[in-house]
């Protein structure tokens, strides 16, 4: 019994998604396990966002199955999906903060609206503050998203995604469109969240250095910075790379195999390690 293989936390089984007659994801299969980090690389338009939205049940596949936490979410009603989604955090590409709500109200939104969370009213504000402290945005509670910079919006959106403490967090291009310094801050937050809350993370990016940081660094909570993690010390916390090309999974494996790949498309995403 003890040898029973661990159950994947998220699994795609021959998933195909079609829009207007064209395949956007084609026959996609993979399984992500608890504690794992997955870095998803791919050209723009290759279906990375669609993949994450399908994992959340926001898009229903035309064929194939998606299992989240062991349950088939492709046959669930929208109401049943709310329960599954409450265990996943999602950072949307352009943050997707509600622009009619303040930052505080945005971060409080999942606590107040997800039924299965059942956060007591007097716990909402402390948890919102804690989440905003976590992303170092403690002083912006009353501001509206439009009053913040792109990097700050991204951080507020991370706070909103993780305020409920979901075991699986999906990040859609967390560093896209940011300057290198802000991008580093954001990826540090992603790794901080992963290491402090021990979450499984799926990270879409087109920056190889993001993937490299996710794979080889860990968060040092004493110094508040990233430090290299020798492989042995991140046992059970492996990082898998996935490369998407026009909706197909053209590579899946660890960083060493990725860097050895001969595929011209895959090679375009790989840069020498920093």
């Amino acid at each position: 019994m003890a040898d029973a293989p661990p159950q994947p936390i998220l699994q795609f089984d021959r998933v195909t998604v079609r829009f207007d007659g064209a395949d956007v994801l084609t026959d996609l299969s993979f399984a992500a396990f608890e504690g794992e980090s997955r870095v998803i690389l791919g050209a723009s338009g290759s279906g990375k966002t669609v993949l994450l939205k399908t994992a959340l049940g926001l898009i229903r596949p035309d064929s194939g199955k998606v299992y989240a936490f062991g349950k088939d979410i492709t046959i669930m009603s929208e109401r049943e999906l709310f329960d599954i989604r409450s265990r996943m955090g999602m950072l949307f590409q352009e943050s997707a903060l509600f622009d009619s709500l303040t930052i505080e109200e945005n971060v409080a939104y999942p606590l107040e609206n997800i039924k299965s969370i059942q956060c007591p009213k007097d716990q909402v504000l402390p948890r919102v503050k804690e989440a905003l402290e976590f992303v170092e945005l403690g002083a912006t509670l009353e501001k509206f998203p439009s009053e913040l910079s792109g990097g700050m919006r991204r951080r507020a959106a991370i706070a909103r995604a993780v305020v409920t403490g979901p075991p699986l967090v999906l990040y859609d291009s967390p560093t896209a469109g940011l300057d290198p310094i802000t991008a580093h801050t954001i990826i540090t937050l992603v790794i901080k969240e992963r290491d402090i809350s021990q979450t499984t993370a799926m990270i879409v990016t087109h920056r190889y250095q993001d993937g490299n940081l996710v794979a080889n660094f860990r968060y040092n909570s004493k110094q508040g910075t990233l430090e290299p993690a020798r492989n042995g010390e991140r046992q059970g916390a492996r990082t898998t790379f996935m490369v998407l090309k026009e909706g197909r999974l053209v590579f899946e494996g660890d960083q060493d195999r990725l860097e050895l790949s001969k595929d011209a498309y895959v090679r375009k995403f790989v840069k020498p390690r920093v």
């Binding site: 939205k53 926001l58 989604r85 509600f98 609206n113 969370i117």
Partner: peptide
């Protein structure tokens, strides 16, 4: 701006 998706993702 994906706010509708975010709404669905956040239980609404």
């Amino acid at each position: 701006t994906e706010q509708i998706d975010a709404m669905r993702a956040l239980g609404t």
